[in-house]
């Protein structure tokens, strides 16, 4: 239970960074925290204590495997997270080239 709670805490740390930090890079790092938290949660959901990795080498193996689906999901989620993080960082770089700052308070052309 503690270990599940730690996922939620990691999630909240990321959310805290996104909401309160003024540096664009730190906001992106906040997203990385949230992504890790969810991926960890997925891995924990599939985990069963004392069971094997789901690799079937014989036909009549005893059915004592961890759940393989969350692992597949985590792989997909990691790829998506990679895509968003890369896009975010490239936009942040472009913003830096225009404004010469990472400070979100100084980047305020748009209102509302």
């Amino acid at each position: 239970m503690i270990i599940f709670l730690s996922c939620i805490i990691l999630f909240l740390i990321g959310l805290y960074a996104i909401v309160t930090k003024r540096n664009l890079i730190k906001i992106v790092i906040g997203f990385a925290f949230i992504e890790y938290a969810i991926n960890l949660l997925f891995a924990l959901i599939g985990f069963r204590r004392g069971m094997l990795a789901p690799i079937i080498t014989q036909v009549d193996m005893p059915h004592k495997f961890v759940d393989p689906i969350p692992q597949a999901l985590v792989l997909t989620a990691i790829v998506i997270a990679l895509g968003t993080t890369a896009l975010m960082l490239s936009v942040v770089l472009r913003i830096y080239n225009r404004y010469k700052t990472f400070d979100i308070a100084e980047i305020r052309k748009l209102k509302g």
Partner: peptide, 25 residues
């Protein structure tokens, strides 16, 4: 302006997307 709008959109949109992922988990 477009970059700034896109970043703002990305931050909001990803919070939504990741919350959806958490709900799926």
């Amino acid at each position: 302006e477009e970059l700034e709008a896109s970043f703002k959109y990305m931050v909001m949109g990803e919070i939504g997307g990741l919350t959806f992922l958490l709900a799926i988990a």
